[in-house]
Design a protein around this nucleic acid. Structure first.
Lengths: 238, 238
DNA sequence: AAAAATTACTTGTAAATACAAGTTGAATGA
DNA sequence: TCATTCAACTTGTATTTACAAGTAATTTTT
């Protein structure tokens, strides 16, 4: 089966306007050309233009005001760790340092935190690693990552110091992250976390259990992240 | 200024179909009546029906297939509280009971948790309420909600027991939630939380500070939610 | 000069019409 | 019987037309 090769007009207009916003041709606060102007420019009828604008408004690129016009709101703002895949993409590389606690090694697994595993995943074994992440030299994240050992040759011999795991997967294994699910809870630091985060007894810690979908069907990445939110609260937008 | 009293047809149709899905009249997997059938039933033209269906599809209630029809997908539940606006939409009405701790009342405010306030918001005062949410008869959420007192006539006299705040805002005030931002952290239960959640000293609690955007420009809802994640972890997909 | 009305825009809603394109099952043919 | 064709659906795209309603600046009136 072929790709749909005819791209509808309203989609073309959407793509054009969208790129004009992301590229800065239209900046935040700007008034978009009126619907009728856009009609003549793109040589389509108003409902077609409106369909494109509907989508832009829906995605947060613009806000429309009856009687005034459509005002550019800019690119929908950055998503924090709660809707992102890795720590690096949320915090940024500059302030983030990584200590490898346990280098990637092949293990058996029985379960991935609270997520059930498929037969194939169980049989393949997992690549296990533990990392401590420092934000501005302070330990904030401690994460355990488990990846099914499927088609990842020489993975355990790669170096992950100060590198994004997901960049490696994308670059060398063509595995792209698509989304995922996560469970959040608050716990009390155990001995290990007290040691890593250098905190006292009874210290609250935020825990995330995540199952991350990839572009490879049936290939999931499991990770468990512990956060010390004393100084850095987790941020997310939706 | 008056409320907008004329509700557009496409909106009415949307509300009807949506409630039919949430109430189980249409169940998951069901085939919705065809667009033309819906036209005759609701006595409107097809573009009007399509606009209602567009929104339902966009919000994940239905999936449309060219040549086949629109298939009901159910209440978009995949998204938990982390990407949703209220507790009700994440947990579902059935298992959720609400105790009003402080009924909506008008107050002054100096700050909204960690979020800065605009001049207008400060001058308008806020509607303040506190609620305890029970999931399967166990206290799990305790939330403080602050809403700017702008154009919300008779709001404080409404009843919010076991009702979704956001449904009320949508239905009676045409305020729709667009998105928002939130900060998450883990804390130790204070005396108040220990009392509400019936937990002992040193109990970890998950705290969310949220600023929620609405369809009204400049109108934000602020809420602070405390969760006892002992039995129910917060769930989210991205 | 200040208030009110007008006018010329803007977006919002709604209908009627037409055809394209995907799906399905029944009728038709070999 | 089996495969093909066809007809009758479905949703998708697009135009044209019309009017409602909000906004803002201009003009007129007071």
């Amino acid at each position: 089966m072929q790709q749909k090769l005819v791209i509808p007009q309203h989609r073309k207009v959407y793509e054009i306007l969208r790129s004009h916003i992301t590229d800065g041709v239209f900046k935040e606060g700007d008034l978009l050309p009126s619907e009728n102007e856009l009609c003549t420019v793109h040589k389509v009828a108003r409902p077609t233009i409106r369909k494109a604008l509907d989508r832009l408004a829906n995605e947060g690129y613009i806000v429309r005001h009856q009687g005034k016009g459509s005002i550019v709101k800019g690119v929908p703002k950055g998503v924090g760790i709660l809707s992102m895949t890795g720590t690096t993409s949320a915090i940024g590389e500059d302030n983030l340092k990584t200590h490898i606690i346990i280098k990637p090694e092949i293990r058996n697994w029985n379960e991935a935190f609270t997520f059930p595993l498929s037969q194939l995943e169980l049989e393949s074994g997992c690549i296990y690693m533990e990392r401590l992440r420092l934000v501005n030299s302070k330990p904030v994240f401690y994460d355990i990552t488990m990846i099914p050992n499927i088609n990842l040759s020489r993975f355990t011999s790669r170096n992950f110091e100060n590198k994004s795991l997901f960049d490696v997967l994308r670059k060398y294994y063509h595995v792209e992250v698509r989304g995922g699910e996560q469970k959040l809870l608050a716990i009390v630091a155990d001995e290990r976390l007290k040691d890593y985060f250098k905190v006292g007894s009874g210290h609250p810690v935020l825990q995330l259990n995540r199952k991350i979908e990839t572009s490879r069907p049936g290939f999931y990445i499991y990770s468990q992240v512990f956060c010390n939110t004393d100084e850095y609260a987790l941020y997310g937008s939706f």
